[in-house]
Amino acid sequence: MKVLVTVKEVAEVEDDFEIEGTEIGPQYLNYDLNEWDDYAVEEGVQVGENVDDAEVVAVTIGPERSEETIRMALAKGADRAVRVWDEALEDVDLLDVGAKVRLLEAVVEEEDPDLVLSGVQAGDDAFGATGVALADAIDFEWAAVVNHLGLDVDEGVAHVHRELEGGVDEVTDVETPAVLTIQTGINEPRYASLRGIRQAQSKEIAPKDLSDLGLSAEDIESDLRLTDMYEPETESDATYFEGGPEETAGQLADLLRDTGVAE
């Protein structure tokens, strides 16, 4: 049994930032493992712990910098990792879903997993579409926004809950092999132990460029082009309470008393 977990290093933006062209100035960005992928990694590692002879492989598309992040996945229990990168990817400012799918499809072909786990979405560009599009491309079954997973390896079925709107779960049986996009809250992601961090240093992160994957620059051409980025005009017509904490708290307390919320 092999589980492939797709992970992405995402940038979080500081409160104060500046936009340069169609990008946020690099000095305002802090990189971290995508929140949703943290849960996908944990789910993959738990599957690995519960199934005999399971291997958990993390795959990322990202520059050298992202090795630090993918090593976190290794420290949390993934067995090894694949990092896809190519010079040709450096100038691409928006890798669209189709391009990501072509890259991941090539990795799936090499790895031949039984289960692919991805996050519901990435916190930065938030397309939320790569997992399901990948499933269609590799002819796997799938389920999006999974917040519960019970895997029956012998039957070849994943019993999942899909988290719909309004606090309702859809209960679904999904045949494996499958791609599941994992929702936050499905588990409690572990912290990497010191031992895990040490072990991760000796785990393999295999670099793959386009030619390793049998792809060419054409395969990463996006149909989408980012043409502008700006801070949204604030629609705020809020009344702001000004001053130090005592003053603002005092004004808010007055408001709450005036409106009858407090006495």
Binding site: V97, A126, F127, A129, A133, W142, A144
Partner: peptide, 20 residues
């Protein structure tokens, strides 16, 4: 949640870009 469970598959099947 359901839109995101079929639209990406439709886009891939039709060979069309998807923007969400």
């Amino acid at each position: 949640v359901n839109g995101l469970d079929y639209a990406p598959a439709v886009s891939n099947a039709l060979g069309l870009p998807i923007v969400t």
